[in-house]
């Protein structure tokens, strides 16, 4: 599974809950869709750190990295390649 598929699965399971109807595209804002509330961000960060073995600095916890599935996927792959390069 790609990063995007795994992240999408997590978000469906934990924030959207339902498989029915509701479309979820990689560019949708999770905040605007009401899927992530103020504590949801912390759940998301905990998941990404555990699932992908990355550590998120406070400065990285910003909407640009976390508000869309596309943004999350791009961020995770950047972090992973940086870790490999190091």
């Amino acid at each position: 599974m790609t990063i995007e598929q795994r992240v999408t699965g997590f978000i469906r399971e934990n924030f959207l809950f339902s498989d029915q109807a509701t479309p979820l595209s990689p560019a949708d804002s999770l905040m605007e869709a009401g899927l992530i509330d103020s504590t949801g961000v912390l759940e998301l960060v905990a998941y990404l750190e555990q699932e992908f073995g990355i550590a998120m600095a406070d400065a990285d916890i910003v909407p640009a990295n976390l508000d869309t599935i596309a943004g999350i996927s791009a961020y995770v792959s950047r972090k992973q390649s940086a870790a490999k390069a190091a």
């Binding site: 905040m31 605007e32 509330d37 103020s38 504590t39 961000v41 912390l42 406070d58 916890i61 910003v62 909407p63 976390l66 508000d67």
Partner: peptide, 16 residues
């Protein structure tokens, strides 16, 4: 838990 909230997210949650 709210004390650990990243500022950018607080802002977007509380204000549009």
């Amino acid at each position: 838990r709210l004390q650990n909230q990243p500022q950018a997210f607080l802002q977007s949650f509380f204000g549009r």
